[in-house]
């Protein structure tokens, strides 16, 4: 016999539960991801009460200085402390990341749920809109908005939020549709439960884990988008600090002061990789199959 032989459903049921890895809260991606993200958060939080120097405090004597005891991350071409900028940049990144994810979920989740709960016509219409927004690059959308409304944090948040909301809506729609096919939703209908209550009582509790993972990924996308916008001069306007603008300002002096490019780039990478690892870890924990199977088979 050459066919795949482990397909008999009962066998799979009997086997699947115990052989899957269940690392749960101790999963390496969860730990590493949390640590990386905590570093970024700590920088942002500490910057609220303390930074080594003032934002515009320039030390003309130490332009483009390398990392030292006075300037942990060196200085830029005006002699401003780069570590201060990194800390304040973290604050911007976290703020824009969190707000645009909030915007994305505020828009995307209801839209996705509506599509899943409504009839075919509405569903097709929403799916069409989602596809168009996904196909439309977030950066392009941002540029459009900036041209109309001028560069500001609000515009950046809106642009990123709208761009990411399409992904959120798509995922919410797909996972909610899957829940809608379950017999317990049909059973709820036959119990006289209304659609809004079905959404709250049956659908959301069964999809929020998936959405949470998506939120972490969306945060990463938002951080990159913010950095890109600022790099292009379309994001947070000066004087508010941003990793993207640090990169942009440092690129002309990359030959003399490579660390000025490296460090903000590294900051973006740490934030994005951290949040993605965290998302992976959460996915492992959040999978209800992984958690309930064990107990179910234990009986």
């Amino acid at each position: 016999m050459t066919t795949p032989l482990i397909e008999a459903s009962e066998t799979v049921d009997a086997i699947a539960a115990p052989t899957r890895p269940r690392r749960g809260w101790r999963s390496p991606s969860l730990i590493v991801g949390s640590v990386l993200l905590l570093v970024v958060l700590a920088l942002a939080l500490v910057s609220l009460v303390w930074t080594p120097y003032g934002l515009d405090q320039a030390d003309p004597a130490a332009r483009l200085a390398g990392p030292s005891a006075q300037h942990w991350a060196g200085t830029d071409r005006l002699g401003r402390d780069q570590f201060t900028q990194l800390m304040l940049g973290a604050r911007t990144a976290v703020w824009i990341g969190v707000s645009s994810v909030a915007v994305a979920f505020a828009l995307g989740t209801p839209l996705g749920l509506l599509a899943a709960a409504a009839g075919r016509l509405v569903d097709d219409a929403v799916a069409g809109v989602i596809d168009i927004v996904i196909a439309f690059p977030t950066l392009l959308l941002a540029m459009l908005l900036v041209t109309v409304y001028g560069a500001s944090t609000t515009v950046a948040i809106s642009a990123i939020g709208i761009g990411v909301s399409a992904e959120v809506a798509r995922l919410a729609r797909i996972s909610a549709s899957r829940v809608f096919t379950q017999d317990y939703v049909l059973a709820a209908r036959t119990c006289g439960t209304s659609t809004p209550v079905i959404l709250i009582r049956h659908v959301l509790p069964n999809i929020w884990h998936t959405l949470l993972v998506q939120a972490t990924l969306a945060f990463g996308v938002a951080v990159i988008a913010e950095a890109s916008l600022s790099y292009l001069g379309l994001g947070t306007p000066p004087p508010a600090p941003s990793w993207g603008r640090m990169l942009q300002e440092a690129q002309s002096t990359v030959g003399v002061a490579p660390w000025n490019v490296l460090l903000p780039g590294l900051a973006v990478a740490v934030a994005v990789v951290g949040v993605n690892l965290l998302g992976d870890g959460l996915r492992e924990i959040g999978d209800p199959q992984l958690r309930t199977r064990r107990r179910a088979t234990g009986r």
């Binding site: 017999d183 059973a187 006289g192 069964n206």
Partner: peptide, 27 residues
């Protein structure tokens, strides 16, 4: 009222038995 074939899919895994059984009463 109705009983479906497979209780693995007809009972919401995230609800307690009391709230499952009480659902028609509430609704």
């Amino acid at each position: 009222q109705v009983v479906f074939q497979d209780p693995r899919s007809s009972l919401n895994p995230r609800m307690s038995v009391a709230s499952i059984v009480g659902e028609p009463l509430r609704s």
